[in-house]
Nucleic acid binder design. Structure first.
Ligand SMILES: [Mn+2]
Ligand SMILES: [Mn+2]
Ligand SMILES: [Mn+2]
Ligand SMILES: [Mn+2]
Lengths: 156, 156
DNA sequence: GACAAAAGTTAGACATGGCTAACTTATCTA
DNA sequence: TAGATAAGTTAGCCATGTCTAACTTTTGTC
């Protein structure tokens, strides 16, 4: 039991951090919440276009578990943010920047799900937890998940 | 390269799920967001009481990175929810149920941080990501993190 | 003990993301 | 092609969690 590969510390001690560092952490979480709606929408829209040919508000509402007016309102926010293109009463399309965001989100989502599954978590739970977790995974952590995933392949 | 221990699937394929299942996932995330404020506050209050002797609004504000009026408002919500006991202009205490929630949250927070660190992620990043991730980790996933952590000790 | 500084609260504003009810537009079908 | 049904929008409501400005209370200092 060498200490060489240790990433260190006893696992259950509370790290005490400088107040500013802690505050920065909470600020990061609040920021993540601000992008969350956009990320989930573009991700879903991309999936619907791919699998259903088009993205319709009814279906977005159904899959998000919200009511149609909520979708209308949020879609116009996405349009204002330049992520989506569309005319009233018609299907929804992604702009280039929307497409780009969607791809990144889908990729991240898939990695998080696969990583959780590689820990032995059932797919349903993995999907559920990933839907929230994904928005709080930094690039660093995403890379670490990817690495761990590769490791898990070797050992199977 | 046996398939015995495989937890299955190619890692980068999109799982397609029934609309209701997907909707339930998003509903779970929305629910998690509703408890998030309470969880972060009681956790922080418990830590402040432990390390500083008492929990004062200024310090809560400083560590959360918000302004004092935000803390005042949220503390009265926690009081209404029966998590906190306090009189105006005085320090804040946890009720039994607040204490209980705080302990669970601290434990979960520590496990998530330790787990991320065990993947080789630096502590600062681990803390930052954990602050958001913790609220979306189901019991199942928390247990899996704990297990993986135990494994990582064996191999170090 | 008075007064200045620090801490805390109150009031009122704002953005976000839900909702229902009522209306409009598009699509389907007889 | 008319009428019915489904889809989508609009208007207006609500809760949450943030803020600033102004006020009150407590604390510390001389
Ligand atoms: Mn999500
Ligand atoms: Mn997702
Ligand atoms: Mn948190
Ligand atoms: Mn936490």
């Amino acid at each position: 039991m060498t200490k060489l590969q240790s990433h260190g510390r006893e696992p259950f001690e509370t790290v005490d951090r400088a107040p500013e560092a802690q505050a920065e952490g909470f600020a990061t979480v609040r920021q993540a919440h601000e992008s969350e709606m956009a990320e989930d929408y573009v991700e879903l829209i991309a999936e619907l276009i791919e699998t259903r040919g088009e993205a319709r508000p009814v279906e977005i509402a159904e899959r998000l578990g919200v009511k149609p007016p909520t979708v209308t309102k949020n879609i116009s926010r996405l349009k204002a943010a330049g992520l989506v293109r569309r005319e009233p009463y018609r299907a929804i399309f992604l702009t280039d920047s929307g497409q780009e965001l969607a791809e990144a989100c889908r990729q991240r989502h898939r990695i998080v799900v696969a990583f959780l599954c590689s820990l032995g978590i059932d797919e349903e739970t993995a999907e559920r937890d990933a839907e929230g977790i994904e928005h709080h995974v930094s690039e660093t952590t995403l890379v670490a998940f990817g690495q761990a995933l590769k490791q898990s392949w070797k050992h199977e």
